[in-house]
């Protein structure tokens, strides 16, 4: 399964998950047969999914035990509702007792599910606290972002809490989606139909250049798998550093510097200018070339 050259972007959450982990190693928790669907969508009399848009379970990755969640972006934009959020929270809770080598979150979500908005917002804040608890226990959490909905809203925050953020060029990461900004602030602020601009502001190459993503990979399930293995093994040999005052003061300085450096920037090109000799070539660069020019090892 993992040998097939399948696009991560085009695959369903289930295909991504199965293709990422070792063959026949996945055990699903709270599987579709249990029918834990959203009672709130049911009240609105609109379609339900038997897994409420997220698959959670245990697997091995190159033999290492992991816990893994995959959001289905095509089911209400992968948005987090009460059941959906509780499944991921439960998985993170299980990490505290099982102590896997890593927890992998295949994020594909616009954030809070508006049909159950209050439950979704509270669930994401619980998710945030759960991720921090898992990290405090010394277990690394990785976010893998390459789905059609990217990682936005609260899930954009959760993604940036993770110890590693793996993105494909097609993956997108941010807080407010371009459509939301355009609706409220106007098309001059952000033209959401300008796909090239959207990718230059939120896409994987921009996020990798700013340092918001730690890895950029090709849009292929095996590429995500191989980097996930490398990262899992990296944290086996080099334990997770705890978040302490010094590391956060350092981060504070870095973020202050970023704001000053790109004080007026509104387009990824302005950021690539600082990093690449030919910024206009960045969108067409292969991932390998991009990583080489950025001076990083994949």
């Amino acid at each position: 399964m993992s040998g097939l050259q399948i696009s991560f972007l085009e695959a369903s959450a289930r295909k991504r998950l199965i293709g990422l982990v070792d063959a026949n190693s996945f055990t699903e928790f709270c599987p579709p047969e249990m029918r834990k669907t959203s009672p709130h969508l049911a009240l609105l009399d609109i379609p339900l999914a038997l897994d409420d848009g997220v698959i959670v379970g245990a697997a091995t990755l190159a033999g290492h035990s992991i816990l893994i969640a995959a959001q289905e972006g095509r089911f209400y934009g992968g948005a987090v509702g009460e059941v959906h959020g509780a499944k991921i929270c439960g998985l993170l809770g299980k990490a505290l007792t099982d102590r896997p080598s890593a927890v992998l979150l295949l994020v594909d979500s616009g954030g809070v599910r508006l049909h159950e908005a209050n439950a979704g917002l509270i669930a994401i804040s619980e998710l945030v606290r759960s991720v921090l608890d898992v990290q405090a226990a010394g277990i690394p959490v990785f976010a893998l972002v390459g789905g059609s909905c990217g990682a936005f809203g609260g899930m954009g925050i959760v993604t940036r809490l993770c110890d590693e953020v793996v993105m494909s060029e097609q993956g997108r990461l941010g807080l407010s989606g371009p459509e939301v900004i355009e609706t409220v602030k106007g098309v001059e602020e952000f033209d959401s139909r300008d796909r090239a601009l959207v990718w230059r502001v939120t896409g994987g190459k921009l996020r990798r250049a700013v340092g918001e993503a730690t890895q950029l990979v090709d849009d292929l399930i095996p590429a995500f798998r191989s980097i996930a293995i490398k990262l899992t093994e990296k944290y086996q040999s080099q334990p997770l550093a705890s978040i302490d005052l010094d590391s956060l003061l350092e981060k504070q300085a870095e973020l202050v510097k970023r704001r000053a450096r790109f004080e007026r920037a509104r387009d990824g090109l302005e950021i690539w200018q600082e990093v690449f000799s030919e910024p206009s070539c960045v969108p067409d660069m292969t991932v390998a070339d991009f990583n080489r020019q950025l001076g990083v090892q994949a």
Partner: peptide, 9 residues
């Protein structure tokens, strides 16, 4: 084993 196929969209 039960099987699930397709996505609700």
């Amino acid at each position: 084993r039960s099987t699930i196929c397709g996505v609700v969209s």
